[in-house]
């Protein structure tokens, strides 16, 4: 048990209850690891797993990004990002652009959310 905190309310996590808190993260395996290993456990095994998962995610996103980049064509109407033409081809260009930009945004989001695991050392 966590000696510093008496379990007087439901508003915080004791070691046994750290699981639900962590399970709120998007990496369920890591959440379960810390829940079961306790608060003082080292993060190293989970860190490796999260970094591997992030690498796979980033690899997939980069693959999507490059695929969209190769297929992307400027809008037929003004060589810009307006995509105002009324043809299925223009609609396709628009969707390609959307997938390109969405994968870029996702890459940023994945990097953001991976940063914490690089600086922390235990499940605390």
């Amino acid at each position: 048990m966590d000696p510093g905190r008496a379990p007087t309310s439901g508003r915080f996590c004791s070691p046994r209850r750290s699981g639900p808190c962590i399970s709120s993260s998007s990496i369920p395996g890591f959440a379960v690891y810390c829940a079961k290993a306790g608060r003082d456990a080292a993060l190293d095994p989970a860190r490796a797993a999260v970094l591997a998962a992030s690498t796979v995610a980033l690899g997939f996103l980069v693959w999507l990004f490059l695929g969209s980049w190769r297929r992307r064509r400027p809008s037929v109407t003004d060589a810009d990002f307006s995509f105002e033409g009324n043809t299925p081809e223009e609609r396709h260009r628009f969707l390609t652009h959307m997938s390109l930009a969405s994968s870029a945004l996702s890459i940023v989001a994945v990097i953001y959310t991976t940063i914490p695991i690089l600086v922390l050392e235990t499940c605390r």
Binding site: I22, F30, A109, P116
Partner: peptide, 27 residues
């Protein structure tokens, strides 16, 4: 959909969850 626990920072979440949800909230 990845931000909800920032309403629960004071439930005693481990720092890794705090870090994760802070990062997502900024993103």
């Amino acid at each position: 959909f990845g931000l909800w626990a920032h309403h629960m920072y004071t439930t005693g979440m481990p720092s890794i969850s705090l870090g994760f949800f802070s990062a997502a909230s900024e993103a």
